[in-house]
Design a protein around this nucleic acid. Structure first.
Lengths: 336, 336
DNA sequence: AGAATTTACTGAACCGGGTAAGTTGTGGAG
DNA sequence: CTCCACAACTTACCCGGTTCAGTAAATTCT
């Protein structure tokens, strides 16, 4: 009933603990015949090395951490995080790293979790999402020397690796497309204004609208459907209402679609809608939503790869992971 | 730069390692004065006990495991799992247990993950979702003596704790409500037929329809929007099409709504829709969906509590966690 | 006052792997 | 035939906590 240890294997194989350790780790120091005998015994009795013992001698816990710092009601509905997690997993489980998860309420608590995890040597590195301006997490990560990869830049992360996608390029493409369709009044419902990539998008949106001679209206929101609805209503009650709205995520776009329908506006006839991040949700609703598509799982996998490289001591810097591209569907058309 | 250990504290306090251990764990064997001095030093130098060392001497890893065995594209969009995870976290982080996550492709691989985690002593217990008929995971968990709580019954889990919600009662309420509205042709789009709670729902749906003299049509599906759309189309092209459809999750219900709109059917005029599990998604679309509401996070928290009790050696059995109740919204009305 | 008990510690073993250093045994070169 | 190099091990200690047995001093009891 007791779970087997290398000592058990050693006894059965008639060798020492050390020999078993060498054999199982592919180290030199045992003959091929002995190695195979030991491996066979390990297989037979279902041996798994105790991760605690391993972590205690070597340095690695073979686990990485992820904290989710958004209210539970958004976490549930936003496909973003689960997509990211799926991507992480693909990389991590291939190298048999575990993923440790914690939901936190504030960045301050998040920092506490990092301190604790690292202090406890529970993890070898962390994946940090939702980079903010003057992010309090960055100096702590640097001080702790905790390997990390930051998602959601580009921004100032000092020596810490980051990975981002070219949001400015993507939103420029979306606005260009809408203008080509004939839209002149394009609005945007943004995500949390504190996040760095929201700011990047806002700046790029302002720039492209300015250079095309449009007025750029961005209504800040928080990624929830409720707020997305509210922001949409605020935009649509205007007499000079926009003929197209770009949303910073899919959930708000779906909410916006419902508001338009509720107000008797035809989509895309009276209002065109563009969603950011193309989850299955976008193809589910009627009409299906034009979206800025990117492969979130691949994005996550990429981040995990960078983190593992960083844990292995390789120098990783500032990586761009590909631009979202526009996937036109039924929710965009020339304005009436 | 090196992370502090109890030996560092011992040196600074001028006592032995053992005394520090007693002091920090609230064990008897040190004077109150010494204890306070030691705690103060620990605070000051930012001491966190190495979890590996702890796990190596004591038995507990202070972590529980969760595997997700659904295709990535569903994981992303279904609010269910994230809701559950939020609930787990609330309990686990309060007792400073970590949650270790792994996405797996098949139940066979899931079993492998359990074996490995338990063999490595990486976790103290697991939360098992999506109970199936003759579930291969149950005998393995029993054989490993791995503390576990199973969600998704009721079913045969032997000595393993389980927690479920009364799906039969919920679906009965939904059908009764629709019939009271005047519906005579009620259909259902179910989740994965292999899952035990799907079977429970199907049986209850058949029963109540039979006793009310309705024909019970259940189209099996897989929780994805795509399949939900397909199933809905199959139902609605029928000349004798249903006037109401109950969906086994919110995503399929939203997809069904889009199909109805695309086919020119008014919701709720021509078709009433009931969703199972009331995520924000249901209130987001237009019209908002009538749903079978339950508090998924609380459900998860409950499961986590049971698991922690089981890890602590308490006997836990078969717990019912409350029935979903009907939340009527705009998607249900008397048929035209 | 002397014995018995309690308090407040110390020292060492232990958990289960990893690994540097030491010990055999074998084969080949000189 | 000796010496050396090298493979194939063994021995022993390390990691950082927990815990048990032992000990000296303080306190209580008779």
């Amino acid at each position: 009933m007791k779970r087997p240890t290398i000592a058990d294997i050693a006894r059965r194989a008639g060798v020492s603990k050390g020999a078993v350790s060498y054999a199982l780790n592919g180290q030199p120091g045992v003959s091929e015949a002995t190695r195979q005998r030991i491996v066979a015994i390990a297989q037979e009795i279902g041996f798994n090395p105790n991760s605690a013992a391993r972590a205690l001698s070597g340095a690695s816990a073979r686990a990485v951490g992820l904290t989710l710092c958004r209210p539970a009601r958004i976490l549930g509905i936003e496909p973003w995080f689960m997509g990211l997690i799926s991507g992480f997993e693909a990389e991590l489980s291939a190298r048999s790293y575990a993923l440790t998860l914690q939901v936190v309420a504030t960045p301050e608590l998040e920092v506490e979790v990092y301190r604790r995890w690292w202090g406890e040597r529970r993890i070898d590195g962390v994946i940090v999402t939702d980079l903010r301006e003057n992010d309090i997490r960055i100096p702590v990560l640097q001080q702790l020397q905790l390997p990390a990869v930051v998602i959601g830049g580009p921004g100032e992360t000092g020596t810490i690796a980051q990975i981002w996608s070219d949001d400015a390029g993507a939103i420029t493409e979306a606005v260009r497309y809408l203008v080509a369709l004939g839209h002149r009044r394009v609005a945007r419902v943004s995500g949390l204004p504190g996040l760095l990539h929201t700011q990047t998008r806002t700046r790029a949106f302002d720039d492209i609208c300015g250079s095309l001679g449009l007025s750029a209206i961005t209504v800040p929101s928080d990624y929830t459907g409720e707020e997305g609805s509210r922001a949409t209503r605020r935009l649509l009650i205007d007499t000079d209402r926009p003929t197209a709205i770009i949303y910073d995520n899919d959930v708000m776009a779906v909410a916006g679609l419902a508001v338009a329908q509720e107000m008797g506006l035809a989509v895309p006839g009276d209002l065109s809608i563009v969603a950011w991040d193309d989850s299955p949700l976008c193809s589910l609703v009627h009409p299906p939503l034009t979206a800025l598509t990117r492969d979130i799982a691949e994005y996550g996998a990429h981040a995990a790869r960078e983190l593992l490289a960083s844990i292995d001591g390789k120098q990783v810097g500032n990586v761009e992971a590909g631009t979202a591209h526009l996937t036109p569907r039924g929710s965009t058309a020339p304005p009436r």
